[in-house]
Computed example of a mutant assay.
Amino acid sequence: MRIKPIPQGLLILLLASTGSAQAIVGGIDTSAFGQVSNGVQIAPNWVVTARHVGLGLGDTFSNGYGSSPVAARYNMGGGAFPLNDLALVRLADSINAPVLNLNASALGAGSSYDIAATIVTGRNQVPRGYAWSSVREFMPTYDEDDAGPMPPLDVNWLVTYLDGFGAPYVQGGDSGGALFLGQIDHADANSLLWGIASAQLYDEDANQQAINYRSGFVQLASYRNWIDSTMSTDLADGQMASWMISSVPEPAPQALLALGLLALAWRRHRLR
């Protein structure tokens, strides 16, 4: 399986050339996920996004509820994509939007899941801004050099796809978008934010053509301690993330028995 980052820089090039290329493949038009942009607003002055998204000091964050200059940015560690692809951004001005709850329940490694979820693009308006999919596996690490000298990278991806690996899936410009638990058609205070859009995943056929598209979202619960400590250490506003426990299943016993085989398969992954 190969992976492809969905960087925000690519969004600019695609929009400049086509005007509509940035959108979830197989998605539905929407303007009802106002908290979601090239990051997701989780408090009046705080946004969580993918670390590879270029949203830095002095830039302006805009979503469906307003806009604000970026006052501070915190990255989850260092290193190249896809390692720990998560960042927090503090806004200079508050944006009045319904506060989203973050899913505090973490999936364990496995590929036996089939949990309804909603994916929302990093710009969330038209065209094709959201779609219903399913979380099928949790991928905690990624081995970028096929079991070579480099250690596996922590990615903590929730991987979404439907039977047949067809649409919907994310593409360039969707970075920093959202994964919500369940099938929803708008984001309000009851919506449960599960992950942040990080990567497009796919296989290659015998002719090296991309097949079996999937989407990779960073599971926020895997980074709860970092999110909470980062926001509490920044004393600008005293705001904190709101977490809620949900009911998520454990991997089926047969999946747990197969983890060794999965680990061997992951060693064949390459970073494109």
Results as ranks from 00 to 15, higher is better:
P5A: 01
P7V: 04
G9Y: 12
L11Y: 15
I12R: 15
L14E: 15
L14W: 10
L15T: 13
T18N: 14
G19V: 11
A21C: 07
V25M: 01
V25E: 08
G26F: 15
G27A: 06
I28N: 07
T30V: 01
S31G: 13
F33Q: 06
V36C: 05
N38Q: 11
V40D: 05
Q41S: 08
P44D: 05
N45Y: 12
N45K: 14
R51Q: 05
R51D: 01
H52S: 03
T60I: 10
S62H: 07
G64Y: 02
G64C: 04
Y65L: 07
S67Y: 13
S68P: 01
V70N: 09
R73P: 08
Y74Q: 07
N75C: 11
N75D: 14
M76P: 04
G79S: 03
F81G: 04
F81D: 07
N84H: 06
N84T: 14
N84F: 02
N84W: 01
D85V: 01
L86S: 04
L86Y: 03
L88T: 10
V89K: 07
L91M: 08
A92E: 04
D93S: 09
I95F: 00
N96G: 07
N101G: 04
N103Y: 00
N103V: 11
N103Q: 08
S105A: 12
S105D: 03
L107K: 09
L107W: 03
G108D: 01
G108N: 00
G110E: 05
S111Q: 10
S112W: 05
Y113N: 13
T121N: 14
Q125I: 00
R128K: 08
R128C: 02
R128Q: 14
G129R: 14
A131Q: 14
W132N: 15
S134L: 06
S134Y: 08
V135E: 10
V135D: 10
R136M: 08
R136L: 08
E137L: 06
F138V: 05
E144G: 02
D145H: 06
A147K: 06
P149V: 08
M150K: 13
M150L: 15
V155W: 00
V155A: 01
N156W: 02
L158E: 09
V159S: 05
Y161L: 07
L162E: 11
L162V: 00
G164W: 00
A167V: 15
A167Q: 15
P168W: 10
P168H: 09
Q171T: 13
Q171M: 11
Q171H: 13
G173L: 08
S175E: 06
L179R: 02
F180C: 05
G182F: 07
D188L: 04
A189F: 10
A189Q: 11
N190D: 15
L193A: 06
G195N: 06
A199L: 03
E204Q: 09
A206Q: 03
A206C: 01
I211V: 14
N212M: 06
F217A: 04
V218T: 13
Y223T: 12
Y223P: 08
R224L: 10
R224M: 11
I227A: 02
D228L: 04
S229N: 12
S229D: 13
T230R: 02
T230E: 03
M231C: 02
L235F: 10
D237H: 11
S246V: 00
A252Q: 13
Q254H: 11
A255C: 12
L257V: 07
A258D: 11
W266P: 00
R268C: 00
R268P: 00
